[in-house]
Amino acid sequence: MALYRGTGSGRLSRGLLLLLWVTLGSKLCPTGAIVQGANTSLAVPQNWTAHESATPDNKSQLPQFTLDDHYWLFAHFCWINFTIWMNNVTGAQLCDWRIISRPYSYLQYCLESAAEKLKFGYPNRIADDYIFKSHYIYFLNCTQDHPVLLDPPEDMLLALIIAPICLIPFLVTLVVCKSKDGKTQS
């Protein structure tokens, strides 16, 4: 990960090199292999296998990439940049929106713009997986400013339910008794 600590366009070019390495290597990945990202791992799509006998002349044996595969590559690139930014954030700062808003917004913008460029629907399953993963890895332990309101204890809840129910027959009886007098009050 020390390769990615650069700033500016250096970070982008290293990320593109990683993307090219993943897509154009002689052996892309064995079936079911895992690509190690920063702080997590994500499964590589199953059809990303390169055959040993594949040559530029024999292109039929090269893997065929679907639109999902292309979007997954872009999304993984967005994820790598996001994790690089989040590596610079310490534990107490993870819940401070002023600090994490820029990397989080970048992740969302990157996923959205990649989907737009590929004419791939957004939101989608792949983008949702990365957004949920970011919440699970980085923001799971953020406490809420307001305490969570819980249901009252069962005995108090029972009293709050039964009291109005018992009050209704008493009020009906009172109305009936008052109306039997026959005198209208003026």
Rank of each mutant, 00 (worst) to 15 (best):
A114S: 15
A114K: 05
T49E: 08
T49W: 01
Y122N: 09
Y71C: 04
Q93H: 12
Y130G: 03
V172H: 06
P45S: 05
Q93E: 12
Y104M: 07
K59Y: 02
C95W: 02
V89A: 05
N87T: 11
G8E: 00
L3E: 15
P147I: 07
Y109L: 15
I168D: 09
A163C: 07
L19R: 07
K133Y: 00
Y106S: 08
H146Q: 09
C177N: 14
I131Y: 00
K117I: 12
S60K: 15
I131G: 01
K27L: 07
Q61V: 13
L171A: 12
D128I: 07
Y4N: 01
S60M: 09
T90I: 08
Y136C: 13
L140I: 11
E52R: 05
T23R: 12
S13M: 09
I161R: 14
N39Q: 09
A114Q: 10
S9H: 07
D68N: 08
G91I: 04
E52N: 04
P153G: 03
A159E: 06
Y130Q: 08
A115C: 06
Y104H: 08
C78P: 03
T184L: 05
M156R: 10
F139G: 11
T7M: 05
I99K: 10
A159S: 07
M156C: 04
P103D: 13
R102H: 03
L94C: 05
N88M: 02
Q36R: 13
K133P: 00
T40G: 00
L140F: 02
K133E: 07
H70D: 12
K59W: 02
T83M: 11
I34D: 01
D145Y: 01
F120A: 13
S13H: 05
G8T: 00
I165F: 01
S9Q: 11
P103W: 07
L149A: 13
C177Q: 11
N47K: 10
L12A: 11
I161H: 04
K27I: 09
L107T: 03
Y109D: 13
G121D: 10
G25N: 15
S134K: 01
D181C: 09
D129L: 12
D68E: 12
Q36H: 09
F82Y: 15
Q144L: 08
R5M: 14
A75P: 08
G91C: 06
P63A: 07
I84G: 00
P147A: 04
F132I: 08
D57M: 08
P56T: 10
Y122H: 14
I162S: 06
D151I: 04
S101W: 04
I126A: 02
L20N: 15
T184R: 02
K119A: 14
P56M: 11
I161A: 11
V176T: 05
L17V: 13
L157F: 06
R14Y: 01
Q64P: 00
N124F: 11
F77R: 14
L157E: 10
Y106C: 01
D145T: 12
K183A: 08
L111R: 07
S41C: 10
T23Y: 02
L118H: 06
E116P: 00
R125C: 02
D57I: 12
M86E: 08
K119H: 13
R5V: 13
V175E: 01
A33Q: 11
G25H: 11
A2M: 13
N58W: 03
G15H: 03
P153N: 09
C29R: 12
T7R: 05
T66P: 01
C177Y: 06
Y71W: 03
D145I: 04
K119E: 14
S134C: 02
